[in-house]
Design a protein around this nucleic acid. Structure first.
Lengths: 159, 159
DNA sequence: CAGATCGTTTGTGTAACGCAAACCATTGAT
DNA sequence: ATCAATGGTTTGCGTTACACAAACGATCTG
């Protein structure tokens, strides 16, 4: 009936592009992270844990969208490297509160520093501003993701 | 010695975020794509093939950063579904020129359409403009990627 | 002709999962 | 106090997506 001035073009799907770019980064990351005793998946977990300063193992599983049993293994890796600490929750002693240790924080920073070359390589087509924008968009998307997970977890609005 | 007016903050690494967001999309994509007989990796290959209208199998392997033998299997899948066609290159009959078929193009569009919900779900924190920006940044990054691959392939500057 | 190259097949290994079952410690409701 | 539900853990099994190596046919190139 009415035509809005803004062109109504179909939005692009970025799933495939994400897959593609992510794979390129991940492949290179593996070799850079190996000397640090880390794998890409560990890095994801560590960054999540840095954002949320401490969360239950189930929350982590939900955020990572990963099976609980596999999260156990992931955390075993991180804990035996002293990057992460499992503390019993005082409110519910069944729960583990997972938190980064100081070593964990430092190691994460170190890893990120070491990955500079990788990102320069893969994201070389983007200038620093564009990369920052990319980061912010991804951060926004992933943090809403966590908010949703949190709401689902609480199943109420006291998130 | 001199302080520039622009804040010189360390750039963020988006590798982990990319991993995270991509995983969330991929998980959901799998179930959406299954009825179409596709997997996420097929979609990546199809989008690459749509961009480059026809390329050798080796180029594809290089772009996908995937082992040649595995690309064969991937293309076998796509070809037996009539989404892709392997033609002998007239210049070098050892080479296969891989191209999307009409069916392939349609199926790709269909798949992308079907993935709308998935992206709404995962990227719900971004408004349409932001999503478009995200797409453009990823596209930029991945196409430079291909340019580099192409230069490496040719090993000259006639790319 | 001889050696390199493109694609293919086959076969082997590995990492990252998902899923199910059984277990313990703890909680919360009756 | 009892008993079911819950959080975490372990074990074990299956699957998928790879990488890598070896050997082959067809083809190109010197």
């Amino acid at each position: 009936m009415s035509e809005l001035p803004v062109v109504n073009q179909p939005p692009h799907r970025c799933g495939a592009l994400l897959d593609h770019v992510t794979r390129r980064i991940r492949l290179r990351s593996e070799s850079v992270l190996a000397p640090l005793g880390l794998r890409p998946r560990h890095l994801v977990a560590l960054t999540v844990l840095r954002d949320r300063r401490g969360c239950s193992q189930q929350d982590l599983a939900k955020t990572l969208e990963m099976d609980g049993t596999n999260v156990v293994g992931l955390l075993n890796d991180l804990e035996s490297a002293n990057l992460v600490e499992r503390r019993r929750s005082p409110e519910d002693r069944r729960r583990h509160i997972v938190e980064l240790t100081d070593v964990g924080i430092k190691q994460l920073v170190k890893a990120e520093f070491a990955l500079a070359g990788v990102e320069d390589d893969v994201l070389g087509g983007l200038d620093p501003d564009q990369r920052e924008t990319l980061y912010n968009l991804l951060y926004l998307a992933s943090s809403r993701t966590e908010a949703v997970a949190c709401v689902e977890a609480a199943n109420v609005d006291d998130c």
